[in-house]
Design a protein around this nucleic acid. Structure first.
Length: 268
DNA sequence: ATGTCAGTAACGTACTGA
């Protein structure tokens, strides 16, 4: 079972690029982020005409996530638990059953910029950085509950976290950014420390592997990228891993997203 | 040195969020 994540930066603006990638890569399951579309205005035919089932969790103008799958999507839930007042569309879950049942959790983790800290160095309440860190607390709680099921589970998407200096071409540029601040990286480590495996790094160590390049200043041509899209596997999921790759060449296509897909192949 | 893009409100173009 090939399971992919792709921040497409606007599904309606990305019809050609998304269609071409689906045709070329043929994932069994894919999660999308930043669809920037409501459920009603999502271009469903783009997905369904290729034989995929589709579940969306959209929002007008920004954010928005979706899951598509060649097999049926079961037990679909929308929204990250833990804050009923949070209206941002950033989380969707579904179960896909082939030889094994796999729980798929697609996320668009908050960016968190600008970083606003008070005189004591604490994130300012109501600010975007505080929202990011609070969202990661809720993610930790959900991830802990999912681990207790002791089943193959995949948490994937745009984490908006640069885990280590080698995950940025120029880490010094990101030092004070919400994607690389110590609090953000510590929250990501706490997630891993629950017992999840970061799929890409079990197979490909070292610098130079990125999933995002800014549209500005020729970042892709200079390979000034960052690795912020990740796939985390529960222990039962990690047992099944066969491969994990970043489709970096997608960034060189026509009208590309600023992110590229990352995928994992499970023996499931 | 600078450099972009998608979507909104609204039909110009400034604004938001990345």
């Amino acid at each position: 079972m090939k399971i992919a994540s792709f921040n497409i930066n606007g599904v309606k603006a990305r019809a050609d690029a998304l269609g071409a990638w689906l045709d070329a890569t043929q994932p069994d399951v894919a999660v999308l982020q930043e669809i920037k579309s409501t459920d009603e205005t999502f271009p469903r035919a783009l997905i369904e005409d290729r034989g995929y089932n589709l579940e969306t969790h959209g929002q007008k103008g920004f954010n928005g996530v979706a899951i598509l799958s060649k097999l049926p999507l079961e037990d679909v839930t929308r929204g990250l638990p833990g804050d009923d007042d949070d209206i941002q569309a950033r989380w969707i879950e579904a179960t896909v059953v082939d030889r094994r049942a796999v729980r798929i959790c697609g996320m668009y983790l908050p960016n968190g910029n600008p970083v606003e800290l008070d005189a004591g160095g604490q994130p300012v309440t109501g600010g975007k950085y505080a929202y990011k860190l609070a969202w990661m607390e809720r993610l930790h709680a959900r991830a802990r509950d999912l681990l207790m099921l002791e089943e193959p589970c995949v948490l994937l998407g745009d984490y908006n976290i640069i885990p280590q200096p080698e995950d940025a071409a120029r880490p010094e540029v990101w030092r004070e950014d919400a994607l690389f601040r110590p609090e953000s990286r510590a929250a990501f480590r706490r997630l891993l420390n629950l017992g999840f495996t970061e799929a890409f790094r079990t197979r490909t160590p070292g610098p130079g592997h990125y999933t995002f390049w800014d549209y500005q200043a020729g970042a892709y041509q200079k390979n000034h990228g960052i690795r912020i899209d990740h796939i985390l596997l529960s222990p039962q999921g990690a047992d099944l891993m066969r491969d994990c790759q970043i489709d970096a060449d997608v960034r060189a296509g026509d009208k590309p997203s600023d992110h590229v897909p990352i995928w994992v192949e499970l023996d499931a």
